[in-house]
Structure formats: structure tokens, C-alpha cells
């Protein structure tokens, strides 16, 4: 694992709705190193998906990237034109989504859709592309790839569709693969198959991965480093082992404690009280203050900054000042 090759610097993506402005991504900085799997964990509305969509420049109005930089191979993607961005998207940065049925085009065959990006980005002929597609379909464990090549997405099962998505995403050998809840819509036995497949492919292609998920089990199996998001901001960032062993932020601790653990016979299930704050009206202090067990006077009045408490371990919490 070498240098960080993609960096977000103070990224702000806001949505201007009729009710007001939603700071969906509020000053997020992160970097991904070559060959590394970085996971972003958080619950609905934490801003994890909008962060990844911003990175791909897929934010549509009323959303907008307000400020910040997305540095990739020495260029700032925020300044890229639509046309220039298309050459990056699907080629150097690819993405797989949660629901493969809605992200595949129902009126084109599987082969047609995967070939499209290969022909577009790699200057291959139709025949060469087909050969490559079948090779990719075989790699992602699809039985009878020649038949699947000519099938339409609806004829495939959920697990097969996600394999097709992965084949499509990896067909141009991207530097970065963004996987947004890649297994959330799948049954648990199929999820295990897809996670195993992803691990094998990471090893083979040495692709860096930005994994967006709400499932700490998936994080524990896949990630090298983890970012925990809450209310549009990063609240904790560290390597995966430290996060599970020595979590610092009360929200991270709460998330870990409220995750049901099948592998322990412990009965008690700890929950975080309350609900996420309204993004139209974040409190001036810490955004987690209302739900925090260790809340102090300062937490309600002053917004905490992200501080490095140990090399590589940052926390946004007044307890760790």
C-alpha cells in the first residue's frame, strides 16, 4: 500500500430544498491509498452516499458541490467538464450500487451493457469487447457466461445481477471502485458469496475500494481503514482493528454495542436513545449531543473539531481534547 492517490479536501455538498439548505456533506476530507479498502459507515442521512456520489460528480440539482477539492492524479475533479468527467467515470473510477436491478438498463442485454463501457473507454472492437466481457463474467463466477451475455437483467437473480455489476465495474480495470451498500439488498448466503468474490478480485486487480455500508460486520470483513460519519461529518477515523477494539467516539461505541452479535451468547442489546437530528436545523454544538450519554456543557454550545489523538486516529469529540 503506497501513496494516497485520491483525496477529498474540505468537501461540502449541500442540497437547496424548499424547506432550507441541507448540508449533506459538511466539510469532509479523506484520502485513499493505492490498494486500500476504505469503508465509510453511518446510518441513513449521515452523508455517506452523498460523499461517494460527489466523488463521482453525480450530484444533481438541488444538490451542489459548494466548495472543496477532489484531487485525483494531480487534477481537481470539481473543475472537470462533463465530457472530461465521463472519461474518468467507469474507466478510472467505477461504481457498484445497492440495487443492481435499478442500475442495469432493462432493455439492453447484459453483454451489450458491459461491452459499451469497454468500447467507449478502451478503443476495442465489438468482437474484442465480447471476448473480454465473457472473460470477466467467468471471473465473477457466472455459470454459462455465453448464455448470460445474451440475457436481459430481469432474467437473472439478485446475486447474479450484482456479479454482472461487478464484472461491468471491473471491466476497464479501474483504479478506484466505489461500492455503495453492495450487498444490502441480497440474502445473507448470497452476500457471503459476493463478499468472498470481491475479496478475491481486490487481490487480483489490486483495485482500491471505497466501501459505503451501514453494516459493521461487512466493515470488519472487508476494510483496512474506517471512517464513521454522523450528520454529514466525519466523527471518527482509524484503522479497522483500532475501531473495533478501541473506539473513541460515543457514537461509534453505541453503533458497535447496538449491532447484534450472533457469535456471542450475550443477551443484552444496548441502544442509542433518540433519533438523528434534523439536517435542516443542526444544533450549534456537537450534532450527536442529544443522543450522547457522556454529554457535557461544552458539547451543546461549541462544535467540536476533528482532532488526531494518535497517529492515524482522529475523533470529533470534546471528551478527547
Amino acid at each position: 500500500m503506497g501513496e494516497s492517490f485520491i483525496q477529498l479536501k474540505n468537501l461540502k455538498t449541500y442540497f437547496h430544498t424548499e424547506e432550507g439548505t441541507v448540508p449533506a456533506v459538511d466539510d469532509v476530507s479523506l484520502s485513499i491509498k493505492k490498494g486500500e479498502t476504505l469503508a465509510i459507515v453511518g446510518e441513513s442521512g449521515s452523508g455517506k452516499s452523498v460523499t461517494s456520489l460527489s466523488l463521482m460528480r453525480l450530484i444533481e440539482p438541488p444538490g451542489r458541490i459548494e466548495s472543496g477539492e477532489i484531487l485525483f492524479e494531480g487534477h481537481n475533479l470539481v473543475d472537470y467538464s462533463k465530457k472530461k468527467m465521463r472519461a474518468v467515470r467507469g474507466n478510472k473510477i467505477a461504481m457498484i450500487f445497492q440495487e443492481p436491478l435499478t442500475s442495469l438498463n432493462p432493455v439492453f442485454t447484459v453483454g451489450n451493457q458491459i461491452s459499451e463501457s469497454i468500447i467507449e473507454h478502451q478503443n476495442k472492437s465489438k468482437k474484442e469487447a465480447k471476448q473480454l466481457v465473457i472473460e470477466m463474467l467467468t471471473k465473477v463466477g457466472i455459470p454459462r457466461p455465453e448464455k448470460v451475455f445474451h440475457s436481459y437483467p430481469h432474467a437473472l437473480s439478485g446475486g447474479m445481477r450484482q456479479r454482472v455489476m461487478i464484472a461491468m465495474a471491473l471491466s476497464c480495470n479501474p483504479e478506484l471502485l466505489i461500492a455503495d451498500e453492495p450487498t444490502t439488498a441480497l440474502d445473507v448466503t448470497i452476500q457471503a458469496q459476493i463478499l468472498t468474490l470481491m475479496k478475491e478480485l481486490i487481490r487480483e486487480f489490486e483495485t482500491s475500494i471505497l466501501l459505503i455500508t451501514h453494516d459493521l460486520g461487512v466493515v470488519a470483513e472487508m476494510a483496512d481503514r474506517v471512517i464513521v460519519m454522523y450528520g454529514g461529518q466525519i466523527v471518527e477515523e482509524t484503522d479497522v482493528y483500532t475501531l473495533f477494539k478501541h473506539p473513541k467516539h460515543p457514537y461509534t461505541k453505541g453503533l458497535l454495542a447496538s449491532t447484534p452479535k450472533v457469535h456471542e451468547l450475550k443477551e443484552e442489546l444496548i441502544s442509542i436513545s433518540g433519533t438523528v437530528p434534523n439536517p435542516l436545523d443542526y444544533p450549534i454544538g456537537c450534532r450527536f449531543a442529544d443522543r450522547c450519554e457522556s454529554v457535557m456543557e461544552t458539547c451543546r454550545t461549541v462544535h467540536p473539531e476533528l482532532k488526531e489523538i494518535k497517529p492515524g486516529h482522529t475523533v470529533r469529540c470534546w471528551l478527547h481534547e
Binding site: V188, L195, E221, F244
Partner: peptide, 15 residues
């Protein structure tokens, strides 16, 4: 058995 073993364990040291 398969269902049990398919569940991701929230502990990276077990991976």
C-alpha cells in the same frame, strides 16, 4: 450451518 457461517462477524481479527 451455512446461514450461521455466512453472517459477517463484527470483529476484524476473525476475518
Amino acid at each position: 450451518e451455512g446461514l450461521l457461517s455466512a453472517i459477517p462477524v463484527p470483529d476484524p481479527t476473525q476475518r
